[in-house]
Design a protein around this nucleic acid. Sequence first.
DNA 1: CTGAAAGCGCTTACAG
DNA 2: CTGAAAGCGCTTACAG
Lengths: 356, 356
Amino acid sequence: MKDVALYAGVALKTVSRVVNGERGVTPEMAGRVRAAIEELGFRRNESARLLRTGQTASVGLIVEDTGNLRYGTLARAVEDIVRANGSLLFTGSTDNDSERERALALALCARRVDGLIIVPADADHDYLRPEIAAGVAAVFAGRPSNLAEADAVLADDEGGARDAVAHLIAHGHRRIGYLGGPPGDYLAQRLRQGYADAMAAAALPADDRWAALVPPTREQVGQAMQGLLAASVTAVFSGGSEYTALAVRTLRAAGKAGRIALVGFGDFEFADLLDPGITVVAEDPAEMGRVAAELLFRRLAGEAGPARRAEVSTRLIPRGSGELAAVLAARSALPVRSVLAALSVACAQRWLRSAS
Amino acid sequence: MKDVALYAGVALKTVSRVVNGERGVTPEMAGRVRAAIEELGFRRNESARLLRTGQTASVGLIVEDTGNLRYGTLARAVEDIVRANGSLLFTGSTDNDSERERALALALCARRVDGLIIVPADADHDYLRPEIAAGVAAVFAGRPSNLAEADAVLADDEGGARDAVAHLIAHGHRRIGYLGGPPGDYLAQRLRQGYADAMAAAALPADDRWAALVPPTREQVGQAMQGLLAASVTAVFSGGSEYTALAVRTLRAAGKAGRIALVGFGDFEFADLLDPGITVVAEDPAEMGRVAAELLFRRLAGEAGPARRAEVSTRLIPRGSGELAAVLAARSALPVRSVLAALSVACAQRWLRSAS
DNA sequence: CTGAAAGCGCTTACAG
DNA sequence: CTGAAAGCGCTTACAG
């Protein structure tokens, strides 16, 4: 810029005026400046401008994994709103490692991003307190944070699970299994809660053997599914498309593909091309991204007031697998004496309860 | 930083030394500075530092759509290498709009990113010439650019298409259809070339009615697929997972799902769970991202020399649909007189050619 | 070992 | 309408 001023024989400020399109420059002067800019190939350094201005017109998005379609979709929705607001978007993945989340968020804050949208690796965000105090806006998406003062969007995972299980119950199922992540996992926890609530609402028992809480590896899910089948469930609710895929594989291998009902949490491409088509409760990651970004830019526009909580709903999409009727376990592999034994245990328990 | 210096009663430079961990500061002094930093909640402004340094430790990635799994996967691979090199990553989507690509790239350059990885919306990148001259490193990925001086990675799409078609030919097919994007589309063009080459290599004719070049909408692809069936193909090569999905739908609707062979370009989740499993030629977007990022950081590390060209290969994954044997069109709907007419036209043409 | 000065590329606030 | 000076938050190059 200095060079341009020198070349055009004007003051620095005049160049600045032309570059910023401020009025109050004679056409003749502006022309000279523009010629100099052209001649010297001048390109304003945005970072320098922003240093002076105090804003950076950039925001950061931190998710579990940008290579996961769910988060890719969320990222894209965020990006569109970021662009509409004239900002640029940094993205980063944590792989659910809270240490990595922290490092990323702090690095972004050191660049003085205007705001941050974070899908928390875990709930603890004390490390962000000083940054927020220093003026960074933060919005949490998809999972809860301990920072009550920040805006947040959550999905109605629990409601989705309830819908799924209620759907199965409506189709005559009583023995419904739940297949999902380990207890430490936030989503798995909420889905299981929804499952339990729906069962309870229908006054159905939820046998412990009907809940398979395992990491999404081929072996573990396969075994867990077989366990559910051994426990004579007539339907399964699977908590995530990885689980759904592996559930379908196990059902096929066991020759029960069209007989055991299945509702999956999370939609996926080609779900309607499987046989039967897979009924799912679809999340809406794009909507979540949109809402999060909108909350963020409201704050950046100066909105004060208490933290906002938004919720994104889920939607059940029937495709066949969730509408299979309950198959009575008439020819159950369970020996008659086991059934009788189980029944008598249940009777005894009820008798004991009523007696106490 | 000035405040910290004042508070600690030292010079600015001493604070800088402590913050940067430079040696040559008495422990006592360093302690005082650290206390002041703690007390004041000082956090160094990375942008300001980088302004002085000249580098920004950030790179930009521009793809068609981060919400598309293919590009999400690529982005994730890029991110990992960017992180390993201590940089931060900007991402942006173009939706194949070259004007948007330009605006994004230029905005990133104005922020003085160290480098840019671009999946070109179109080949023209003259707009980047001044930026590259000014020192930005650029790598193109997935599609060609007219900037011969920049590094580039391309996929062996054409080879993948050849493999797919050769695979079908090896399974006895002679009448093979190609279903893909319109002629203007880069990928579609290369796939069709590979298809044509494989047919020619096997001395097979490639009837014009066997090539369906349409945008990936449900109606158009459905109609095009029906056209291929009407032309009595026994196998189809589909150029992209959108096309593959719609091809499967049409085949099902026509009751030809297990009879017409199908090889798709581009792998997708659940491909092995369809019936039959879908044979595909898989791309490797993660590898493409990795290679592109590595090329970029080599340049940033100072590597000179001529532009590099890298190629990422594809891999055929047999799953059933591509191994179906050719079904003879014994009961072809084609009336006998049409066949005779076609034959006589071909004879006449050959006679004309030999006569001239 | 410590510090005062100049400068990265721009803008803001004020004179003329 | 135009410009000289100061400053954004840091580092570099040089003295002491």
